[in-house]
Every structure is written in C-alpha cells, then in structure tokens.
Design a protein around this nucleic acid. Structure first.
Lengths: 192, 192
DNA sequence: CTCGGTTGTCTAGCGGTGCTAGCATCGGGT
DNA sequence: ACCCGATGCTAGCACCGCTAGACAACCGAG
C-alpha cells in the first residue's frame, strides 16, 4: 500500500505545482501568456501530463480561482476581525476586498473574469466560493437594514465592490479617488 | 475627384459591414466565434482585407465598443427624459443600463470586458465613451449630495451597476431579485 | 531473479488561431 | 491604348489547445 500512497502524494504534489506555476505565470505576464506549452515547460513535464490532472486549460484556471477564493475569504475575515464596530468592519471589508483584487489581479481574473468552468450560486458551487460569500455575509448581513434580505444586500454590496475592482484595474476608473469611493459605498449603502 | 469619393464611400461602407458583422456574430455565437477567417467569409472578402481597415482583431472589438457606447448613451438619455423627478430618473437610468447590458451582452463585453485597445478616463479617450459617461453624469450628478464630487459619485454608481451587470450575466448573481437590487442601489446611494 | 503487464510519460501531429509577404489583376490617368 | 499604382488574393508563418499512439519504467507474481 505504501507505494501507492507515495505515488498519490507525488501526484498531488505535482498538481499543486501546476496550479502554482499557472498562477505565477499569469501574475507575471498575464493569462494570455499561460499556454499549455509554456506551462508544461515550466513544470518540466510534457503537455499531456497537464491533461492527466485537468480536463483542459479552463479547469486549471478554475483551480487557481478556488485557491483565490480561499485566500480572499481568509483576508476578509482577518481584516474584519481586528475592526471595532459595524462601520469599521464594513470599511475594513471593502478595503480588504479591493486590496486583494489589486494585489492579485490574475487570481481575481480567474475567479470572476475568465471562464474557469465554475458554477456560482448553485447547489454544485464549490465550497470555497460559498465560503468566500459567507465571509462577506458575516459582516454585511448585520448592516442590511430592516426589511432587506441580508443575502440580497450582500450581493448588491459585493457587486459594487466587484465593479470598482474591475473598472479600476482596467483603467476605467482613475485610482486617485479610491478612498472617497470606498467611503461613499460604506456610508451610503450600509445602514449603521 | 468623383471616382475617389465613390471609392472612399464604398470603403467606409465596407468598414461598417465589418463592424456590424463582427457584432452580429458575437451576439449570436459569442466573441470566441468571431475569428478573422469566419468574419472574412461572412463579409465575402479574404482575411487581409480586414487588416486594411483595422490593425487587428482588437481594433475591431474596439469599433464595436464605440458603437455600443453611442447606443448606450442614447438609451440612457431616452430613459431619463421621460421620467419625472430625481428618484424616477435615477431608477430609470439604472434600469436602462442593466437592460442594455442584458440585451447586448456581446457589445457590453466589447466595451468593458474585452480588450478593445481603448483608453479610458484620459485625454485620448474617444468621444463616444466620454459622452456615455456624460449621460450618466447628467442624471447622477444632481443626486450626489452635499460635499460629494459629482464625478466621483457617478463613478461609484456606475461601478455598482457594472458589477451587477457582469455578475448577473456570468451567472454569479441569481436573476430573481434584480428589482430589489436596483431599488436598494437607487434608494441608498442616491441622496434624494 | 526474471518475466509480464500495468502505469506513466513522451513524441508527433491535428485542426484551429491571428497575422503577413508577395503575387496577380483590375481599373483610372495620361 | 497603354502603363502603373491601388487593391484583393493565395499561401504560409508561428503559435494555440488538445490527443493518438509509441515507448519506457516500474511493480508484483512465480
């Protein structure tokens, strides 16, 4: 049995290597540069090896996205944990979200911009994505206000953050008023 | 001179044909299906003809995006013109924006999701894009509230709409609570 | 220790992509 | 009527995602 276990371990190791390499390459040179050939060369295996781990490129993107979701959830919880009061928590959440998107553009793209073949808001939605949404809900649910469904409120707030994240990074929003934009969002949308 | 004028006219006509064909193909089968070969076949010319009009595929996407910006601006102005009072105008604007994104997904992608090689929020920003933003500003500027820069407020509201548009269409937001989400955005963000 | 079979990896190649060099042909100006 | 430049074509480049089939390496049985 031990032999099989070792092989399985090595295989899992290599799978992590593939995902990490894809992520690094995307972060360095953009997702366009992440081709199966380049990726194979970086991990020092031939192309078909990739297809013994993933169905195709989209599934590799999906794996990066799931990693990102885990990290995003952790970043949001870490930021809100050290903030006192609802106002500070929501502000810290918004900050952490936008910071994450700015610091990990390729991962953020994998999660929300590219097609990673992931299902959202469904039964089959992967646990990592549900948990990231849960992290938002924990803080935002308590400032939704009377008669407003916490889930719907969280979706609206999230969409607003997502819009700012994507438009900022795509050069559609000038970065200098970022603070004002976040304050506006927090002060107006959240009922404190 | 008349000969040259005729040729110039025919050339402009063909350029419109290229853009319209690209847009139609993208709307029917998605941007992935818009390849230079297929596009050339549809307009009944060979591939290199495309490159005598545009530098490459990205510039074709950009041309579709500019068309879209013009239409979006018109749709927004048409919607707000028939609404009475600030509240109704903002609500109509939000509705029109999300409706446009839902009705023209490929065009919306060309404008904000894909790389059309367009500059935003700069000197060199094409007139159509500036005007679309201006259409937003006309309605949103008057509900920004005291001490809030109208431009910054418009950016925030726009980003929120953009977030909802993209997340909804990508299946990240369930469509059933769309009305509630729009109401939330209008009632809270705008100071009426 | 040897052998058979499974498991794993690689080489090579398919059909597609965006884009371009170079030739042919067509038509306007003299 | 002829020349010549503009214009559109054929053919091909390098690259893409993905896969079939050959080959090697290794494990377990005798």
């Amino acid at each position: 049995m031990s032999v099989q276990e070792r092989k399985q371990r090595e295989r899992a190791e290599r799978e992590r290597l593939i995902v990490a390499t894809a992520r690094g390459l995307a972060e360095q040179q953009g997702w366009d540069a992440v081709t199966t050939r380049r990726l194979a060369e970086r991990i020092e295996y031939s192309q078909p090896v990739l297809y013994s781990h993933f169905r195709g490129k989209r599934e590799i993107i999906g794996a990066v996205a799931l990693d990102g979701a885990t990290e995003l959830a952790a970043a949001l919880r870490a930021a809100t944990a050290v903030a006192d009061g609802p106002r500070a928590r929501v502000a810290a959440l918004a900050r952490a979200y936008l910071d994450f998107a700015a610091a990990n553009p390729a991962v953020y793209d994998a999660m929300f911009q590219l097609d990673g073949g992931l299902a959202f808001a469904q039964e089959s939605t992967p646990e990592q994505l549900k948990d990231a949404f849960a992290a938002l809900l924990e803080t935002l649910g308590e400032v939704a206000g009377e008669g407003v469904h916490p889930g719907v409120f969280t979706e609206v707030f999230w969409a607003s953050l997502h819009g700012q994240a994507t438009l900022t990074r795509a050069g559609r929003l000038p970065p200098e008023y970022l603070d004002q934009r976040v304050d506006l969002l927090v002060d107006r949308l959240a009922l404190l």
